[in-house]
Structure formats: C-alpha cells, structure tokens
Amino acid sequence: MSAASADDGNRLAPTRAGRVKRSMTAGDAPETVLGRYLIERDKGGRNASLFRDHRETEPRFVDAGRSLRSANAYPDAVRDMLQIAKHRGWDQLKVTGDVVFRREVWLQGQTLGLDVRGHKPTDRDRQAAGGPRDRPRRDGRDLSERLDRAAVVVRALIADPAAQARLMARALTRASERDPERSAPRDQRQRSR
C-alpha cells in the first residue's frame, strides 16, 4: 500500500454544513498529537503519513488536508484524528469506511462533542458513549456481562493471546478495586453482611 492511499475507504472529513472558517491544511494539528508520530510526506510535500514508529510499514493514518484516512480503526489513531479535526474547527464530520471504523469515530466523537455523520449508532453504541442505561444490577451480573463484552472487543483488536489475558486480568483487577463488594465471591459478600 502506498503511504498516500492509506485505504481511501476509512475516511473522516468535515461536512459542508455551516459557514465556520475551517483549516484544510495538511499538518495543521496540535503539537501534542504530532509529537507522537513520525511524519513522512510525498515529493510535493503533501499527504502527511503518520507512523507510530520506524518499524511500521503502513501509516496509522494519512493527513490529506481536506480529510484524514486510516486503513485501520485503532482507537488511539482515531482519537488523534479526531483531535486534529477538532483543532481544525471541524465540528461536523462525515465518516466513511468499514463499520468498525465508523463506530469508533462516532463513539470517540461523542466524547469530544463532535457531530459525526455516516454511522447509525445502535443502543449499545449510545450506552458506550454515555447515553441512557438500564439500572445496574446488584447481583454482580452487570460486572460479569461488561467484562464479557470487553473480552470480545479485546479478542477482536489484539491478536496475541498473552496480551489479551494481561488486559483482561488488569480489567478484572481495576473493577475489583472500584467495587470490592460486588466483585467478591458471593459467599464472602454474605459473610460480610
């Protein structure tokens, strides 16, 4: 794959709505974002390809000025793309590409207050973005169900089984630290009452 293409399918760009002055200049990004990447430009100085490190063969994303494109839906890259969009004044975005990319852009865009079009959110997407939720269960099943859902996402995004196990163990530990009463085995909870 050429560095300039970075899968033209997964793309976010500003919508035409509104008359707010917006930047369309490649490279116009917060220094905090640019500092995390190695940047490669084409011979004309355009289409900045941003790489996380020197070993990567494909860029995490490409900054074409009028749009940002990525071959993957890495959450950290999507976060950085959205920070660039916000920095440029792109408060309304159109996202295209595969469903995983569109969902990730929509979810993270909600936390930044961006209007993201091109993804029809499901109820689960709205809940993940902090929308209305059912009342939490008192019997610990809510925690178990959330960890099960997290395990599905971890398996989908991370190929290494050892890394998956470490992440899930850390998630369980953090959940236990937040609410030791709900995460304790049932017999221990009954004795503590």
Rank of each mutant, 00 (worst) to 15 (best):
T111M: 07
V116F: 09
E58S: 10
G9K: 12
T15K: 12
G131W: 10
R88D: 10
T173Q: 02
S5Q: 13
A73L: 10
R103M: 06
A169G: 15
Q188T: 09
R52S: 06
I158P: 14
D7A: 08
A150N: 10
A162F: 09
R79L: 08
V33A: 01
T57P: 02
D187G: 06
A175N: 01
R11W: 13
G65E: 05
S5H: 14
R36V: 03
R11K: 13
V153T: 12
A73K: 04
Y37I: 00
T111G: 09
D134H: 12
G130H: 06
A184P: 00
S192N: 15
V105K: 00
A163W: 01
Q92W: 12
R170D: 02
I158R: 15
S176H: 11
R146A: 14
K21D: 14
Q110V: 02
S2E: 09
P132Q: 12
P121R: 04
D148T: 10
R155P: 01
R60V: 15
R52L: 07
P75H: 04
G9T: 09
S144T: 01
R191T: 13
P136F: 00
A85P: 00
Q83M: 12
R41D: 13
L143A: 15
Q110T: 06
P30G: 00
Q92P: 10
V153K: 10
H54A: 15
R126H: 03
D76K: 11
V95A: 06
L157W: 00
I84S: 01
A151Q: 07
D139Y: 10
D139L: 09
G131C: 08
